Simulated assay, not measured.
Amino acid sequence: MLDFIYYPVSFILWCWHKVFGFVFGDNNAIAWILAIMFLTFTVRGIMFKPFVKQVRSMKKMQDFAPELKKIQKKYANDKQRQAQEMQKLQREHGVNPLGSCLPMVLQIPAFIGLNWVLRAFSIQPKDGSPKTNNYFFDQAGVDSYIHAKLFGVNIGDAIHHASVLGGTGGGWNWNVAPVAIPLMILASILTHLTARHSAQRQTVTAQGNPQTAMMQKLTMYIFPLGVLVFGAFFPIGLLVYWLSNNGWTLMQQRLVYTRIDKEEEAKKVEAKEKRDSLAPKPGAKPKPGQKPAQQSKPAAEESESATDDASSNGSKRNAKAGSPHRFAQQPQRPRAGQAQQRKKPASGGKNPGQKGSGQKRR
């Protein structure tokens, strides 16, 4: 039913086994281990671009995480409206939440296909006849896989062949444990380190989204524990796939994250240089057609206050002394002694206090 998955996986494995079998020999377990590892690298290489898109999508989500918090706080009592506003915000920023799950979803068919292809090497036909082929592998390829041993253990064996996972024979094979358990532990550690390294990039997003925080805990602790427990049901070849897959993921994350961080830093430096180049130099006249630089708020307030002071000083010169509120004061009434001095002069044109020639001196 899933031959559309099994045949491509089998073909990639067959190609790499031919390459390394030419160097180490077809029946050598090293050739099979390297073929499985490079099958993993081939699948991850195909998914490299979706992984980069996933990282960029995560970066955008971190950038508008404060806006998500505002929406969650504003519509805390209306979950439906909150979901609508969050989807609207994601569309405005060009972020697809499902894009972060795409690489993981694409790995699932490869894992299922490899699990079945490796187990199918040891599944005998129902009529009891010898197995002659396994998808792209002929009978020589099937015999080569069955007889390939790593430290005395066949790479197709598992600690327990669970029928649920496609295993046959059942029972516990404790002779496989010395090889399988170290691989299980290493695979579990690399799974934790990979999830931990990815979670460090999503700290801001996780603080604003409880679902993201819960998924981080699952990937950091539950998944590694699951690999450690259920690894007993995986054949040696599948444990090699899991180990190489997580090792590749950890290395790829470090390289891609470093590259994206450098790009973001370069964009910031370029934007700063652009702003500095557009700003006029001190004392230089603006170029024709260049818009004047916007005056900062403190300088604008200072110039406005200076204008107010100048206008008030001018009003003081033209008008009489005003009150502190700049209202013109009413002229004061002259006192009794001053009233006589301000009387109009006599008809002779002399002041009242001036003695005339015909007036006797008292």
Rank of each mutant, 00 (worst) to 15 (best):
Y135Q: 05
P324E: 06
M61R: 14
H192S: 03
E264N: 15
G170H: 01
Q200D: 08
R361S: 07
E67A: 02
A199M: 13
S312W: 11
G113K: 06
A284Y: 15
F137Q: 05
L114K: 02
G289Y: 04
V43M: 13
Q139Y: 08
Q341C: 05
V269T: 12
V9M: 08
F233A: 11
I181G: 01
L255Q: 08
M215Q: 13
T212W: 06
G348Q: 13
F151S: 14
P66Y: 03
R275P: 05
Q332T: 07
I36N: 12
R361W: 08
Q84P: 09
V256F: 02
V117W: 08
Q80A: 14
A177K: 03
A232I: 00
G208C: 02
A293S: 07
N115T: 06
P210M: 04
M251W: 10
A162F: 05
P286S: 11
P50C: 01
N351W: 04
P345T: 03
Q202G: 05
N77P: 04
A310W: 04
K73F: 06
R275E: 08
R119S: 08
Q340I: 15
E263Y: 00
Q139W: 07
N133D: 07
E302V: 04
W14N: 10
S312G: 13
I30V: 11
F41C: 02
A319Q: 10
H93M: 02
F41Y: 11
L278M: 13
S277W: 06
I146L: 09
I12R: 08
V176Y: 07
A177S: 06
A180W: 01
S144E: 00
D143A: 12
V117H: 06
P109R: 02
F234Y: 09
P210S: 05
L193G: 05
L34P: 03
R335K: 15
A284V: 14
N115S: 13
A321Y: 04
G113I: 06
N96G: 01
I33L: 12
F230A: 13
V55W: 02
H147W: 01
C101E: 08
K268L: 05
E273T: 05
L114S: 03
Q54S: 00
Q330I: 06
A328Q: 15
W242V: 01
M37A: 12
Q294T: 08
